[in-house]
Design a protein around this nucleic acid. Structure first.
Ligand code: SF4
Ligand code: SF4
Lengths: 137, 137
DNA sequence: CATAAATACTACACAAAAGTAGTATTTTTA
DNA sequence: TAAAAATACTACTTTTGTGTAGTATTTATG
């Protein structure tokens, strides 16, 4: 859980692209490096392009590249762009009328962690992640 | 996300049972109070019984009750008991050979939050949750 | 002993996510 | 201008989680 496979792929692709200096990334190249199912991958990348994160160039010398600055793309934005479910702010129990005054039994166990998690996702941009030395994607 | 529906139900049922003083809980009663699909619920409760969390009494005056002390049942145990996936310790990206020395790009974003979350789930028992005043389950 | 009311079991139906297949379209290049 | 190589689109298949249906088994009680 935590993330759907689709979201996981999207995040991995973008982080990979952010790390590697390269003008254009073809889906085939990303597929070969990340071993994400090719057709599935193209759908995700096309989707990211439609949502303004990537620019897609069609035709023989085509491919994908970033459309926005890396420091403008936060993790939470990526997640929300591809996650099918209605917003990632979903709770551990999906109950109604939630607040500190009307909590479910898990509210105080979960709320703090959730806030921290969401804060991390909101504050971390792809630019932040580039500085980390990574050997796997 | 976060938890599957099945796990959510299991957690809600046990928290509900922990809060209400009552010798025996029939599945029908829990169903009426928590509006969890009846047949689905019986499967989950039967499952929890097989795994040693609940005791099941069959026959006309039957039902379920706790088999262990409430302070012996942690949230993480409940989750692991019913979650289909192989262990809830799953990561945000499901990569191989993970460590601080061989991290993926999200490792340092996720690891801290995850540890905190897991610690909460591991340390919180149903007994801890009983003390909280709850109006919804 | 028969009925009622509970859990236990098995098989199927439905829905959403994940993955696959085939084709259309665009653009470079020989 | 035709072939090659890329993205775009549409539809289908598979898998998994969720939910439903029907029946068997157990046990209290009239
Ligand atoms: S943890 Fe808080 S926000 Fe989530 S369902 Fe419970 S009360 Fe609502
Ligand atoms: S966050 Fe850490 S544990 Fe998770 S996949 Fe990345 S390296 Fe592995």
């Amino acid at each position: 859980m935590i993330l759907t496979k689709t979201t996981e792929y999207a995040v991995r692709v973008l982080i990979f692209m952010a790390h590697e200096e390269r003008g254009l990334f073809t889906a085939r190249y990303v597929h070969e490096r990340l071993r994400i199912p090719y057709k599935y991958l193209t759908r995700i990348m096309t989707d990211l392009a439609k949502q303004g994160y990537l620019e897609s160039i069609r035709g023989r010398a085509g491919g994908f590249r970033f459309q926005k600055n890396l420091n403008k793309i936060t993790l939470i934005k990526i997640i929300e762009a591809v996650e099918a479910t209605d917003g990632f702010d979903k709770c551990i129990l999906g109950l109604e009328d939630c607040s500190d005054e009307n909590p479910c039994a898990l509210h105080f166990v979960w709320e703090k962690t959730k806030k921290e998690f969401m804060k991390n996702l909101s504050n971390t941009t792809l630019a932040d992640l580039v500085s980390i030395e990574i050997k796997k994607f």
